[in-house]
Design a protein around this nucleic acid. Structure first.
Lengths: 340, 340
DNA sequence: CTGTTAGCGCATTCAA
DNA sequence: TTGAATGCGCTAACAG
């Protein structure tokens, strides 16, 4: 039992039940075109009675567009992306859309595959934390609305919701400089993306503004996106430059690696070393000392992304690109203090 | 520019390009039915040349089923669910399916709405951490394959991937009893779901097995799913029962609240109080002392869910239900030690 | 205001 | 082995 093909009621069934034509059913249920109020009620009742659920695929085929939105992120296990997706989904759902979520693991191939999928599904838009500019271009060529989230790849055109990475990094660096630090190391993984580039620029700008000379050797580039790599980079840096008094980790994964290395070496934070990070994720407020961070209010960030997309779908098709800048905010906790 | 409707190539276009009929295109590209190898190549080349992407909606309409799988979870911001979804997505993607992710916030209404959506989309299956049994029933009535993940609502039928909550709770409780604790409090939020009920049962069973009398007053029920509520419950419990030497938090959110309250009161862990939790999430290994937990290997857990569903889709339509039990594993860290 | 007709793009009969 | 015809379920013209 239970198995087999379930013949689900169609619009024609509703039509029969209500004694009208299929097109009237469509109009009555969708509120498009004219329908006599009395008829509309009858159709609604009939539909409810037989449990009619309009077939989304038929509708999308006919309309050449669906109520689906593609969301393409790097890593759902990273709370930054998970929160972003959570914010997006919340707004989409409230607006009657649903989210196709694809993880690309920071891999351009996978990203391109997902673009194919989204094109095939005729999603009405895509929100993407881009890895390669090809995907974004490809999306556009397919006539799909795209909102770039968190960073931009290549093209500077089109809708985007971005954090002000330069300002965020300045906030942190200023904070550290203001405490009296002069040897502040930056741990960063990439500077090809707008996020990394901006954070590096902010770090530089803050030094410049304060008139503090910057030692380029204190900028450490991690090669991978794993916390373990960041731990190694931290070890190396601390070994080579024992005079460093503060560490600035450019994202939450790097911060994790740095924190672990610091714990392993039993370095007293903030007495011997201050630590600050970009992006506030839960563990940073759970550990002692709590980590000073720049938060981007990630869930709201995601909401903004969805709002920008929805706005574009609501007729603003040929409007100017919307660029939203999310203000980063410094959260001072106990991991930063004046140098000894 | 860029705007307007993009006329995407259809199978007919490919047919024209390759000098064959549309049906041959379909056969050649899908590998169904007979096609001359030479023709197949020609069609493939033509398709690639003009950038043909089969319309997923048309295909789903025709096939009465899509390559979409609905995933319905409680809260993407909770790392447990995020990891679960990450595991599911990874396996689905590798198998050529995609994930429609819906958050129900533990709300039965939202859950039911999502069921409607999934039915409308003709998803080929749904993986759900159920809130209400109605949704699961409704899904079945629509002839949709469902895999219940982590817990079951009402019905004991059908495919499911479940943690052995009773055993996991026993593992923790035994561990604490073995250390010599006799006054172990349990912080739990619900016991209507199979997860909560199982964990409570395991806590009881371990006491029984050890011949240690259990004080029912040490079982504290949180009313909400927020960490803050758990913090309050912890405060109350600690106030009422200062002789408690160990705390067992039944999930990661409760553990967070408990941990925060413990920090606030500056209670020495594990010297004055031991703390253990169900489900291992990142902050638990970052804080000092690290929290002793039972891990369910959540990402793999998610993978198993997807595998069970895929297996069902692969012809096992009328097969016996698959029930997978995921073995919990005790991870002993520094938050548990013999009572003072 | 409502019904008839047509077609979205595909996969599958059935004939050839 | 291939092509022509058909219909999945829906909505939008167009007549009435």
């Amino acid at each position: 039992m239970s198995g087999g093909v379930v013949r689900r009621p169609t619009g024609a069934d509703v039509a029969r039940e209500a004694g009208v034509s299929p097109s009237t059913v469509s109009r009555a249920l969708n509120g498009t075109g004219y329908t006599a109020p009395e008829v509309r009620e009858r159709v609604r009742a009939a539909a409810a009675r037989i449990g009619y659920i309009p077939d989304a695929n038929a509708r999308s085929l006919r309309n050449r567009s669906s109520r689906s939105v593609g969301v393409l992120i790097s890593d759902l296990r990273n709370p930054f992306y998970a929160d972003l997706a959570a914010g997006i989904e919340q707004v989409l759902r409230a607006a009657g859309y649903h989210m196709i979520l694809v993880n690309d693991d920071g891999n351009a191939e996978e990203e391109l595959l997902a673009v194919q999928t989204f094109a095939a599904m005729r999603v009405s838009g895509v929100i993407i934390t881009p890895v390669s500019s090809r995907s974004v271009k490809s999306l556009r060529e397919h006539g799909i609305n795209v909102v770039q989230a968190d960073r931009r790849a290549g093209t500077r055109h089109g809708d985007a919701v971005l954090g002000d990475n330069e300002q965020g990094a300045e906030l942190i660096t200023e904070h550290l400089l203001g405490l009296g630090h002069r040897r502040i190391a930056l741990l960063i993984d990439e500077t090809k993306w707008t996020t990394g580039a901006g954070r590096l620029a902010g770090y530089r700008a803050a030094h410049e503004a304060a008139g503090v000379p910057l030692d380029e050797k204190l900028i450490s580039f991690t090669t991978s996106f794993e916390a373990e790599a960041a731990r190694g980079a931290t070890a190396e840096l601390l070994g080579a430059h024992p005079d460093v008094t503060a560490l600035f980790a450019a994202n939450n994964v790097i911060a994790q690696g740095a924190f672990q290395e610091i714990q392993r070496r039993r370095i007293a934070v903030p007495r011997k070393l201050s630590l600050a990070a970009y992006d506030d994720v839960p563990w940073m407020s759970m550990v002692r000392p709590g980590i000073t961070t720049v938060t981007q209010h990630t869930v709201s960030f995601g909401k903004r992304c969805a709002e920008v997309l929805l706005n574009r779908l609501d007729g603003a098709a040929e409007q100017e690109p919307t660029i939203v800048h999310v203000q980063p905010e410094l959260v001072v906790r106990a991991s930063t203090a004046p140098p000894r």
